[in-house]
Design a protein around this nucleic acid. Structure first.
Length: 175
DNA sequence: AGACTGATTGGCT
DNA sequence: GCCAATCAGTCTT
């Protein structure tokens, strides 16, 4: 049965990041490029960062100019530049004053958040982009059923220590 | 004003 | 497994 494709509303992002992160798997990420082209990608891997108490979350160091957007209501974009090379794409979730975000680690056959950001041609101007109203980046539902996934520990956060390095907060589609 | 670090990637040992 | 590339944000002086 056909189900119309439609953009995810802000409400989709305004619940627990541990619900939103796996729910984004299989959803369609749409990018309208400056050259006029539009491309769609299926989200294949996500990772959850949850509040100041999560020592792997950037907000664990408190509210700063960089993390400010994470303290907004869910449904906006958090991008940051890292290792002098990569723009990382995150969606802010939950509600005001509870800084949580989902890192997009994989889309289609692209594995790795650095490569995702490169493919999407992200830059600082996407900081705070509203996913409900943006004309260049948003997420749509698909006609597919919810995707099966496996949860794994998060990558590249050894500095956070236990229990954060071991929590299965990375979600990956399985066939 | 200067030093350090990192939610990565790709290349080399 | 190790390490360089490369720089904004953050912390220290």
């Amino acid at each position: 049965m056909y189900k119309p494709v439609k953009r995810l509303s802000a409400e989709f992002f305004r619940c627990d990041v541990l619900e939103v992160a796996p729910a984004l798997l299989g959803k369609t990420l749409v990018r309208h490029y400056p050259d006029g082209n539009t491309m769609q990608f299926s989200i294949t891997e996500t990772e959850a960062y949850r509040g100041e108490e999560d020592l792997a979350c950037h907000a664990s160091k408190g509210r700063t100019p960089r993390t400010e957007v994470m303290y907004m209501d869910g449904g906006v974009v958090y991008v940051y530049f890292i290792y002098g090379m990569y723009w990382m794409l995150n969606f802010v979730t939950s509600h005001k004053e509870y800084p949580c975000a989902v890192l997009i680690r994989g889309i289609d056959n692209i594995f790795g958040p650095g490569k995702v950001g490169k493919m999407l041609q992200l830059d600082k101007s996407f900081y705070g982009e509203n996913l409900a109203t943006s004309t260049r980046l948003w997420v749509e539902t698909t006609k597919n059923e919810p995707q099966k996934y496996i949860a794994h520990p998060r990558i590249g956060i050894h500095y956070a220590g236990e229990p954060w390095v071991s929590l299965p907060w990375r979600f990956r589609i399985v066939n």
